[in-house]
């Protein structure tokens, strides 16, 4: 790992006809958790994809450890950036352990095979998300929440420096939301940087060091969660007046 393991987006713009993202700049340091919030369609997923190098920004840049994310080799990317997609893939036929192992593919030698080290890492990652018992199951037959856990294990398995999680809490039961929040807190302690898009404001309050409120592809407000998450701002961000009308998030 290079000395500078920060993920830096500068003036990122993306969109074909109408811009989906405009001039987004943010910086995530090791051990920091940044929450992305905003109404449906505000641009959270697109931003995470660009941060993870899945989409190239049309203007601006995303750098990890000082280098453009798009120029990282697959192995460097795997060691640097773990990504949890919002939607679970249709993985006909793959077993859970095979799915998690895919998170280590780019670290294997070019024509090599996984060995004991990799299988132990797979087992540890699954245990970490409370899914050790699912190891042999077929991924496609799992419930939505179980699939999320397995995909999370895959994002964790290579021990990346930054975790990009697109709505990790969706479909998880309340007990596991708490477990999962504790897992992420432990990762943070170990210096892992987290970028999490979510609709759960309680999660933001519990874990995030900074929050970025997106609205129609731009940053409405960013900064310390306590300062930013005011009812008036939330009304604006989510297009409602319920936050000031005694409603609860």
């Amino acid at each position: 790992m290079s000395v500078d393991a920060s993920l830096v987006a500068s003036e990122v713009t993306f969109g074909y006809d109408a811009p989906l993202l405009r001039d987004i700049s943010l910086r995530i340091e090791p051990g920091q958790c940044v929450a992305l919030i905003g109404a449906n369609g505000a641009g959270k997923t697109t931003l995470l994809r660009i941060l993870g190098g899945l989409l190239p920004p049309q203007a601006g840049s995303v750098r990890f450890g000082g280098r453009e994310v798009g120029t990282l080799s697959p192995a460097e990317r795997t060691a640097g950036l773990g990504y949890l997609p919002q939607r679970s893939p249709r993985a006909a036929g793959f077993a859970v352990h095979e799915m998690v192992l895919m998170g280590l593919y780019s670290l294997l030698p070019a024509r090599g095979w996984e060995g004991k080290t990799e299988w132990l890492a797979v087992g540890r990652a699954l245990a970490r998300v409370g899914a050790g018992h699912l190891l042999r199951r077929s991924f496609a037959t799992l419930s939505g929440g179980e699939q999320r856990r397995v995909l999370l294990a895959r994002a964790l398995v290579a021990r990346p420096a930054v975790l990009l999680l697109d709505e990790p809490l969706a479909a998880l039961d309340p007990g596991f939301v708490l477990e999962f929040t504790a897992t992420l807190a432990a990762l943070k302690e170990q210096g892992v940087a987290l970028v999490v898009s979510t609709h759960r404001l309680s999660f933001v309050g519990a874990l995030a060091d900074a929050v970025v409120v997106l609205q129609r592809g731009g940053v409405l407000q960013q900064g310390d969660p306590v300062a930013v998450l005011q009812p008036e701002l939330l009304n604006d961000a989510y297009g409602t007046d319920r936050f000031t009308a005694g409603g609860r998030a």
């Binding site: 990282l72 795997t78 893939p89 780019s106």
Partner: peptide, 9 residues
């Protein structure tokens, strides 16, 4: 899927 492949470099 495409996203899965892209996410793994």
């Amino acid at each position: 899927g495409r996203e899965e492949a892209q996410a793994h470099g």
